[in-house]
């Protein structure tokens, strides 16, 4: 049990506020090995973001502990590129805040921008970029600190459907190429299956691990191609059922 790169050990979280007490997470344990891609799906408001906040160290769990070798990189729902900084300056934010050697950091960031097709936009401001490019820039900003583990909180939900499919392939390719360990939170079941090695289904609040699916598709390749796999539907239906989504009319 030591081979895990990220290990959540019986995590529980209860928020206190003047009006009430909210139990967000109840006894979640999970381990990820190096290079693994795990998606987390669960009903709205069940505590998914809270879980990532805890792994990142932004929120201290009420009970339990997180084991990580190095701080994880966090990518949020929107890109939050700072409008007054150029793309390169945005990508250098992490190293700058942590007072790293800026010359090395810059070389690395320029290399990433070059590799992932943003080199010519390095000196542009965020508003000059399309949604997909902005999200790629946000990913490079996260990668600039060379984290082993990446936490992605619905990173594609601000994109329109067409862009989203393309960006999912792009981001997935980048993360595979950099051999990162990834935890992705998403509402999109198809996205979760197509990108991941495992899909964790959480219960309604307080979040508990309901079931974990090991995704075994025979189709190798990009997420978009994996959606065509014959077994894809099977996983989709199973997870849909687990999530217990009721569509109420009226």
């Amino acid at each position: 049990m030591t081979a895990f790169q990220v290990e959540l050990d019986h995590i529980s979280m209860t928020y206190q506020s003047p009006s009430e007490e909210t139990e967000a997470i109840s006894d979640v344990s999970l381990g990820l090995t190096q290079g693994e891609f795990v998606s987390i799906v669960g009903p709205s408001g069940c505590g998914k973001s809270t879980l990532l906040d805890i792994i990142c160290g932004l929120v201290k769990p009420t009970r339990g502990s997180v084991r990580l070798q190095r701080p994880a990189g966090y990518m949020l729902q929107r890109d939050y590129l700072l409008e007054w900084r150029t793309i390169r300056q945005n990508c250098l934010l992490g190293p700058e805040l942590q007072k790293h050697n800026m010359k090395e950091a810059r070389t690395y960031v320029d290399h990433l921008l070059e590799t992932y097709g943003l080199a010519e936009f390095a000196d542009h401001y965020p508003r000059q970029l399309s949604g997909g490019m902005r999200q790629r820039a946000a990913l490079i900003r996260t990668l600039a600190l060379k984290p082993d583990v990446l936490l992605l909180d619905e990173p594609f939900s601000a994109l329109d459907y067409q862009t989203r499919l393309a960006v999912v392939d792009e981001v997935w390719t980048i993360l595979r190429k950099e051999n990162k360990t990834v935890i992705l939170v998403t509402h999109d079941i198809a996205e979760a299956i197509s990108m991941s090695d495992r899909v964790v289904v959480l219960s309604a609040r307080p979040a508990r691990v309901k079931v974990i699916y090991q995704v075994r598709l025979s189709t190798a390749g990009l997420p978009l191609q994996r959606r065509q796999d014959e077994n894809f539907r099977k996983y989709f239906d199973a997870i849909w059922k687990e999530l217990d989504i009721y569509v109420s009319l009226g």
Binding site: L58, P71, L76, Q77, Y80, L93, G94, L97
Partner: peptide, 11 residues
């Protein structure tokens, strides 16, 4: 969330 982003970088 912008502040959260900076906190995630240990600001």
């Amino acid at each position: 969330d912008k502040i959260k982003l900076l906190l995630s970088f240990g600001a």
